[in-house]
Write a protein that binds this DNA or RNA. Sequence first.
DNA 1: TTGAAAGCGCTAACAT
DNA 2: ATGTTAGCGCTTTCAA
Lengths: 329, 329
Amino acid sequence: MGLTASDLAKACGVSRSTVNRALLGEGRINKDTKKMILEKAKELGYKPNLLARSLAMGKSMTIGVIVADLNNQYFAGIIDAVGKRVKNEKYLLNVTFHEKSKAAEKELIEKLVSFQASGIIISPINKGREFEKYLKELPIPTVLIGNDLKRTTSVGIDEYQATVDAVKYIMQKGYRNVVFCCPPLKDDDGKNNLGHVLRLKGYREVMKSCGLKSCCIYGDDYLPQIEKNIKKSAGKPAYLCSGDIFANEVMTFLHQKGYMVKRDFGVMGFDYVKSYQNGIVNITTIDNHISAIGDKAAEILLDMINGKLARDEYHHEIIGYDIKEGNTL
Amino acid sequence: MGLTASDLAKACGVSRSTVNRALLGEGRINKDTKKMILEKAKELGYKPNLLARSLAMGKSMTIGVIVADLNNQYFAGIIDAVGKRVKNEKYLLNVTFHEKSKAAEKELIEKLVSFQASGIIISPINKGREFEKYLKELPIPTVLIGNDLKRTTSVGIDEYQATVDAVKYIMQKGYRNVVFCCPPLKDDDGKNNLGHVLRLKGYREVMKSCGLKSCCIYGDDYLPQIEKNIKKSAGKPAYLCSGDIFANEVMTFLHQKGYMVKRDFGVMGFDYVKSYQNGIVNITTIDNHISAIGDKAAEILLDMINGKLARDEYHHEIIGYDIKEGNTL
DNA sequence: TTGAAAGCGCTAACAT
DNA sequence: ATGTTAGCGCTTTCAA
């Protein structure tokens, strides 16, 4: 590869450490020597080897972000926000995807640790006490997103309460037949991730408290199930989908089957994503302020990295949410 | 940090190099010693330091992906495809964003080079001969996306021809007043990136060959401009937008102003993104097969890394496209 | 079959 | 103000 600091030192007729001082701009060094070295460095196109630097320093000035994938714009929004927050710091962002595989997620974490990343932001697929312990024992801090595992630092909304509000809102619109849809956001054990579980719980409880029967549709083949459901529905059904991406899928599917939103069924989503709004069809949804989530997660992580926030305490940041009125109910 | 190979050697009562042979599984080594070492390694939780390994080997088994940002799902689709293609290889993906800043893009490239990434896939904002030369002189191979700079390896569609087809399609639908919209995809010099420039060229030329006047709207404030445009339009205008994301913006905006798609204006996009289709409003667009683009880009890069494809030749892969019929024209 | 030693390019503590 | 030296944890060549 390229020029090393030693080469540069030779070219300048000084020692390595002098070159170093010039480059890092610290320590006592003659102004002229410094200038000379810097000029020479530029002239020869010297570029420090970050790998070597990181090894020597024991850290690589990298912040890792691990999410499921980018099919769901929800993650794109979060990553964008994290990127903006970290931009002015000297860190390099490193985004990777676990694709809902627990093993892959752990592998990615290990790689980041091994590359001496300074910290990681994760929208995890793993869960449970063991995972919490695993995270805790990592040599670098982590912040989880959308998944308030008790013994970890995390940021997200109150999924339970948000769902309760959503269901109430739907009822207020006159629906009594509210169906919860939570399709393929399962891990490799077939279990849904915590955020969805909390939403489901919220849904079940309001329904119960209203004396209504819960009905939950999930699984990879949820669309055919929905068709069956709408066919035998007594009153006009409202589909509360655990994600705008699913709400749009449901709506598109039912339109193809000849049903018409609002006339024949209602739809509400979650995780407000702008692209599902176009002025004619605007999906009603919960805006959980994903950019605030990403921003806050990055902020907390930076604070932990800089020692401003204790790593051995758990910080739970709850972000606000609102109902975004559309015209699909 | 954790346990090093030396620690492990000590614990096993052997030398570093023996440990190494056991770990790498090569070289002549006693079967039992090997087994013992591997067990001990597992027991003590030995994890190689990837930074040190990379430094020693001169490469870090990382593939970098640099795109503008994730606001536009177009990039998300490409990244997803690249991720899937690289998944089974032993490479770690590293996704970062230049946010349309030329300087930032170069910085990211330098960082990846400096971290000894094996190769980079870029949707570039920089352009021109100088940039081509810059890329060529990098010590690692690069593949560009959606931007067929002549002296680089790239994959994308025939933007020019696709636009010609799009305009013809719009005309076939009865429109004569076709307006091209190409908003904020500018670099920091205020110039649009090459893909958009080619599209514009295609647009201009068909219009001309049909004896029609071109009208192009761009800039950050393109929405108000569109309102002006529609107000003084003679015939019903069709807005051909250089990106579904813009098509949706235009449509949403005009709806808010009281206009109605298809009745009062037509809209066509580019870069088919699924979320702009819902069964009621389906944006007509050019499907440029972004997943095929990502897949191919990854494949070419891997081939270059593995020496199966010469780095000093330029490979241009053209992906097919089709018109995706919607109901916005 | 195993061990010793050099080197990747850098930082940092120490000596001049 | 500048130079020397010893690591960081790994791979790799050479010697035993």
